[in-house]
Amino acid sequence: MVGAWALAGLVVGLLVRPVADWFDSTAPIVSWAQPLALLLVAAILGVTAHATWRSVHVRRERLEPHQAVNRLVLARACALVGALAGAGYLGYAVSWIGAEAELADERMIRSGVAFVGGVLTVVAALLLERACRVRSDERS
């Protein structure tokens, strides 16, 4: 499922620049806010995954059912959105390769950082999902 969202994001990202050109419009500028937001989400998910892992697997505490479901839903949603956004920014960066526009390099660099943020978001989300799992012999 994550792969399908990433593929969709890649296709959309590759199409943004040509569609903007077709409509005689300016292609979107990527500010530092977008990559930093993805990196912030990845950091929050990573901290949550670490705290959950320590609670469940090290201290052997039980999560309340609603807490576990909330964390699993958060992790799944962030994995899908991280894949979509990260791949979208990768496609957008690739669409600028070889372009001679004055902001092409800036768009590629910022989109590349946003791609890394998207990948880190997916990884942190999957780690959070994994932290919520309990072994079958731990259930009582």
Score class of each variant (00 low, 15 high):
102 E>C: 07
9 G>R: 02
74 L>F: 02
66 H>K: 10
58 V>W: 02
22 W>F: 14
62 R>I: 08
12 V>L: 15
91 G>E: 00
43 A>L: 15
43 A>T: 12
48 T>G: 11
80 L>V: 06
99 A>K: 09
19 V>T: 13
10 L>G: 01
68 A>G: 14
17 R>W: 08
90 L>P: 01
90 L>F: 09
102 E>Y: 10
103 L>W: 07
99 A>P: 01
38 L>Y: 01
59 R>M: 10
91 G>I: 01
50 H>G: 07
75 A>D: 04
21 D>A: 13
9 G>Y: 02
95 S>C: 07
91 G>V: 00
96 W>D: 05
32 W>G: 11
39 L>E: 03
87 A>R: 02
28 P>A: 09
98 G>Y: 03
22 W>K: 09
22 W>P: 05
102 E>R: 13
33 A>W: 14
106 E>H: 10
14 L>N: 06
78 C>Q: 08
53 W>I: 06
84 L>I: 05
54 R>T: 14
19 V>A: 14
22 W>D: 12
70 N>D: 13
52 T>Q: 03
54 R>Y: 09
92 Y>M: 04
32 W>H: 10
85 A>C: 13
79 A>F: 00
22 W>A: 15
62 R>K: 11
50 H>D: 12
95 S>V: 04
61 E>R: 15
80 L>D: 04
21 D>P: 07
35 P>G: 04
93 A>M: 06
93 A>G: 02
73 V>W: 05
56 V>W: 00
110 R>W: 05
48 T>L: 13
78 C>M: 15
101 A>P: 01
76 R>I: 08
40 L>R: 08
42 A>T: 02
19 V>Y: 10
17 R>T: 13
11 V>M: 08
89 Y>C: 05
32 W>K: 08
33 A>P: 07
47 V>Q: 09
91 G>P: 01
70 N>H: 12
86 G>I: 04
88 G>F: 00
64 E>A: 15
107 R>N: 15
105 D>Y: 11
93 A>W: 00
87 A>G: 03
25 S>I: 08
42 A>S: 07
57 H>G: 05
69 V>K: 10
83 A>Y: 00
65 P>F: 04
44 I>Y: 08
108 M>C: 06
72 L>D: 12
86 G>P: 00
20 A>H: 09
18 P>C: 12
85 A>I: 10
9 G>E: 02
21 D>V: 09
71 R>V: 06
27 A>E: 08
110 R>F: 09
110 R>P: 09
37 A>H: 04
52 T>H: 02
29 I>N: 11
42 A>D: 01
95 S>W: 01
25 S>H: 12
52 T>G: 05
44 I>V: 15
57 H>I: 07
86 G>T: 01
19 V>F: 12
